[in-house]
Design a protein around this nucleic acid. Structure first.
Lengths: 250, 250
DNA sequence: CGTGTTATTGACCAACATCAAACTTAGTGG
DNA sequence: CCACTAAGTTTGATGTTGGTCAATAACACG
């Protein structure tokens, strides 16, 4: 059975940050006081564009977002995936120009938070600065894992690894349903995330299904045998740097 | 002609941070007061091991270091390269356990700085905290570029891109000699950095030489035609987030 | 229903990997 | 100074993973 809790916008941020750090009541209150400018972004539209000099950070409220770069011949590499509560461009507080784009893989609801407001909050509650920095540095850790994934793992492992990561991150957020999770990505998009062609993604997925590691019904994927999936993927959740209570039993 | 300036250990850190931010005299003094525990690390030895919980940050003083991960079948992926002045594990201030190793590709001199000392300095001069965070976030930006490099670029572009990055970073540090720079990596190591086999690296390098983009005499590489090399590599130095005065004319 | 997008399949191809041997180079000790 | 060694580079032959192309099937939506 799934219990639906209605979360307001700020709650999603708090929930995300609580997967990686403790927050006291003061800090939660501080976060909840952040001014948010809410925008709905259509599927396949940019939330932040490469080359921009943002004056706000974005906060994903709903939907699936992806950070990406384009290479010379026009092909796309997805650099990371982002769910509700993520702030994928926190680094824009320290790096003025965006070296990549962030786009909505599905229709998405996004909140924009003025840099000034974030800076003021950090000045007032320095611990929040620490937590946000931790969030940004965990993103960096995920990038590292993706370099290894794309650089050194064969297709099967590579694709399985992405599913493992998504599953564990969503589980930490509490947005999985038992062993199932919604990941609304086309096979072409999975290809962009793994550096593979859509056709090969298709065949690899068939193999994972055949091996009874994963079942997929549309956008909903179900982990059939976590232990084996984890082993096949060479997946170790350590790099996600979750708070201890969020990574139990995986 | 090359002018040799003798730099002490702290100077190297200052020099590196000055490639990405302005430092006033106070801040430089603060950095120079950091306590350093100097160690020489033999070739191929770890400076920091995966799984460790460091209580110090490392600062590369001399030699070439590489961040890396190992995958299931024992193959290695190099995640980034580090030269004199780099602090590749700054993130250990915020993430307790190392999700990767850092090893010396050549004999290296390394300084270890207690976390406590860094934290104290940041408390005293918050701007230094900003600069160090910027340093760590630029590393993250470099990871992003490497994901795209390894995921979506063919061998020629991929290898050329690594050379471009090394050249520009070294130039910003002022450790190039005209268009030449020392990069003491074996072809196997270049393979680990690009996700290619040593044999294919060899053939790719031959092609780059044949195309008169690059000349190599041992460890010393010379850029013959920067414009074309940059174009072939699809290289745009923006992602390095150098201070304006350090990226001129590239 | 039609229309556009996504998934699937088959045939073929290319980039890169692997294997193994030869060659070069730098270092070492007699 | 020269032989010897070990590490790294280069080459050729061959294999395999994954890419490309193109057609068809399955959906999703108005």
């Amino acid at each position: 059975m799934m219990i639906l809790t209605v979360l307001d916008h700020h709650d999603r941020l708090v929930r995300q940050l609580e997967t990686i750090a403790f927050l006291d009541e003061d800090e939660k209150r501080g976060l909840k006081a952040l001014p948010l400018r809410i925008r709905d972004i259509a599927e396949d539209r940019d939330i932040v564009r490469q080359g921009e000099r943002p004056t706000e950070c974005c906060l994903i409220l709903d939907g699936l977002a992806a950070r990406y770069k384009l290479v010379l011949d026009g092909r796309r590499q997805i650099l990371s995936l982002h769910f509700a509560g993520d702030m994928p461009d926190l680094h824009s507080l320290h790096l003025d120009v965006m070296d990549h784009g962030i786009s909505a893989l599905t229709t998405a609801r996004v909140a924009f938070v003025p840099h000034d407001a974030v800076r003021a909050l950090i000045r007032q509650l320095p611990r929040i600065g620490e937590v946000l920095t931790r969030h940004a540095l965990i993103d960096a850790s995920i990038f590292r894992e993706w370099i290894a994934n794309v650089g050194r793992r064969p297709a099967r492992e590579r694709v399985a690894h992405v599913f493992c990561e998504v599953f564990v991150r969503m589980r930490a957020l509490g947005i999985t349903d038992e062993d199932s999770f919604r990941l609304p990505m086309t096979q072409a998009e999975l290809g962009d995330a793994t550096g593979l062609s859509p056709v090969h993604i298709n065949r690899t997925l068939q193999q994972l299904r055949l091996d009874k590691l994963l079942r997929s019904r549309g956008e909903v994927h179900t982990v059939i045998d976590w232990e084996r999936l984890r082993d096949v993927a060479d997946f170790d959740l350590m790099y996600l740097h979750l708070k201890p209570d969020r990574d139990d039993s995986l």
